[in-house]
């Protein structure tokens, strides 16, 4: 039985790990953002699988809200990237260290 709950967990965990690795190991700020989206999607998958498992709509609703939050995040994050790229002319996340200090951009 490949499509049991556990197999969905495996897929979700793999996706989540890939997302984590992406966040840790890449410098390209676009890829970092996409990794975050990927992790959100992986969690969504778990929610939907559990919804089917418990035959309850609640977790589907949470998944839907996650998608809504992801959309909101996309809008904010992307406008941030545009502003940062215009100033720094780079996508390197190391260059945005100034965000953590009081130094002006």
């Amino acid at each position: 039985m490949a499509s049991s709950l556990f197999s969905y967990f495996v897929v979700a965990m793999v996706l989540l790990s890939i997302g984590l690795v992406g966040v840790f190991s890449r410098k390209n700020i676009f890829v970092i953002y996409m990794s975050i989206e990927l992790m959100l999607s992986a969690v969504n998958l778990i929610f939907v699988a559990l919804s089917n498992y418990y035959h309850s709509m609640a977790s589907q609703i949470i998944a839907m809200m996650v998608i809504a939050i992801a959309a909101a995040e996309a809008a904010l994050f992307l406008s941030l990237i545009v502003v940062l790229y215009r100033r720094k002319k780079t996508l390197d996340s190391d260059m945005y260290k100034a965000l953590s200090q009081k130094e002006t951009l």
Partner: peptide, 23 residues
Amino acid sequence: LLSASFLFMVQIIVYAGAVITLF
């Protein structure tokens, strides 16, 4: 496949259709 047909559509419309397009 998990019979969340509305989420299936939402995923495509919002994620694939809007978020990544914007991206």
